[in-house]
Design a protein around this nucleic acid. Structure first.
Length: 439
RNA sequence: GGGGAGAUACCAGAGUGGCCAAAUGGGACGGACUGUAAAUCCGUUGCGCAAGCUUCGGAGGUUCGAAUCCUCCUCUCCCCA
């Protein structure tokens, strides 16, 4: 969105949101009439977030970016945190009945997610300010009888049964609770439409069914009109699931996924994927992206796209400072001739570089007079489960101490092999680091 | 209730008395190559420096010698009622 001060007041030139999503590859399905609605002026739109964890993951990031693009195009984004829906459990894409979360955990999760959303969206820009709503607010005093009279009456079982999310579970079974989920989410949309003038719900393509139940409810209950739009499921070129690494989910919370690991996640994207990701996860314009792509083609090994992507998103989710630390860490871990650089790191930098790397404690006194590497790696620190394995890997050239290859299994370590007298960095292969802390 | 098949390492799956620490494939890990990618190639994959030790569902037994034969137990699958 471009804001120009003219005659002392701000005039907004809206970008076409649908067009924007289209070239970014973020549009899967859109209900007829949605584009007209958006072009007619500032629109309020919302996306629901499922409070199953106390942090959003990169999988949720698509939706967060969707809201951000929405706001950038001159509209008003609303994030709905599912205090009530979280208690029911969305069956979409789930093959099994879910465990219900208790209220305490839900409240904690909601608060954490809220804090994360606030990093992305502008909550203080006049009428377009983002808002966060919690559907528990309007569900907590809604009685079951009222619900089945006011909401259930308008939607037929036949309609609900036809939903994909229900069909897929017909064989394996599904509780009434999960079956009702679409009505609960549908009512959210109705409530927001009725009381806040929100006429658009967005979400992942798996949410289409639930969203449409909402527009249907609005139509049947009040002959009102509401719209829907979904993003495609993110696919990776190699077919594996987006948002996971060997270590599990990639989270936005620095306590779960360190900024360094987060940065690395994006940096490691395949070339093909990075082209899609940079469109989805950054606000860069089409021209900027195409220029970057052309640049990338000329020298693919520099991985310019991945670097720009990782930079943009790491700064947005964490901070400029965390980004710089991640770069520094990456250079030390993957750069060349870094043994010296490692020794010269300040202690606080060292610790932040190796944040997220397993740490092992080791008695400092045991170094006096030297200790054999294998004893060190196996008996004292359990970096290797057995002596034989450690020995074999040393022979294969896969063990490094302080970035220097261990040439022989007879190598001894003493106080000269420490970093600042306090740490030893052990490496099993290229990627597995262990920071040994001397006590 | 009756009948049959089976249980082997991370997984799948050979092995039916010594040549078995156990084929082969996958996975995992390491190395080379590379772009911290993909593909490919090489190596490792029970413990031990070694002698050797402990492993083939569990417990006993036969034998100089058992994953392999016998007995009992536990569990899984299939077929018929």
């Amino acid at each position: 969105m471009i804001v120009l001060p003219i005659f002392g007041r701000k005039i907004r030139f809206m970008k076409n949101f649908i067009e924007e999503l289209r070239w970014r590859g973020m549009l899967h399905d859109v209900m007829p009439g949605t584009e007209e609605l958006l072009n007619s002026g500032m629109t309020k739109g919302y996306i629901g977030f499922d409070p199953t964890a106390d942090s959003l993951g990169v999988g949720n990031l698509v939706q967060v970016m969707l809201l951000l693009h929405f706001q950038q195009c001159g509209h008003k984004p609303i994030a709905l945190v599912g205090g009530a829906t979280g208690m029911v459990g969305d069956p979409s894409g789930k093959s099994q009945e879910r465990n219900l979360l208790n209220e305490e955990i839900l409240a904690h999760n909601l608060a954490c997610q809220k804090a994360q959303l606030e990093k992305f969206l502008d909550f203080n820009c006049g009428e377009q300010s983002a808002e966060i709503v919690n559907n528990y607010d309007w569900f907590k005093n809604f009685s079951f009888l009222e619900f089945i009279r006011d909401v259930g009456k308008h939607i037929t079982i036949n309609y609900m049964m036809a939903k994909d999310s229900v069909q897929k579970r017909l064989d394996s079974g599904m509780s009434f609770t999960e079956f009702s989920y679409q009505l609960v989410q549908g009512y959210d949309f109705y409530y927001l439409w009725k009381h806040m003038g929100i006429s658009l719900q967005m979400g992942g393509s798996d949410q289409w069914g639930n969203i449409v139940t909402g527009t249907e409810l609005i139509r049947r209950k009040e002959s009102g009109e509401a719209f829907a739009l979904t993003t495609p499921l993110i696919k990776k070129a190699d077919g594996t699931k987006f948002g996971k690494t060997e270590g599990g989910n990639v989270w936005l919370d620095a306590k779960r996924t360190s900024p360094y690991q987060f940065y690395q996640f994006w940096l490691n994207a395949a070339d093909e994927d990075s082209k899609n990701f940079i469109r989805i996860f950054t606000l860069k314009t089409k021209d900027e992206i195409e220029a970057l792509e052309a640049e990338h083609e000329k020298a693919p090994h520099l991985r310019l796209l991945q670097k720009e992507l990782a930079k943009d998103i790491t700064i947005r989710v964490h901070s400029e400072k965390d980004y710089n630390a991640a770069i520094e860490a990456s250079e030390i871990l993957f750069g060349k001739g870094t043994a010296e650089a490692l020794m010269n790191l300040s202690e606080s930098d060292l610790l932040s570089v190796f944040d997220g790397v397993p740490q092992v404690e080791f008695p400092k006194s045991a170094l006096d007079g030297g200790i054999n590497v294998i004893d060190f790696l196996v008996e004292k620190t359990n970096i290797f489960p057995s002596r034989g394995e450690a020995r074999k890997m040393i022979q294969g050239g896969g063990v490094l101490i302080n970035k220097g290859k261990v040439e022989s299994e007879n190598r001894n370590l003493d106080s000269a092999d420490t970093i600042k007298g306090k740490y030893i960095l052990a490496q099993k292969g290229k990627k597995n680091y262990f920071l040994v802390v001397l006590k």
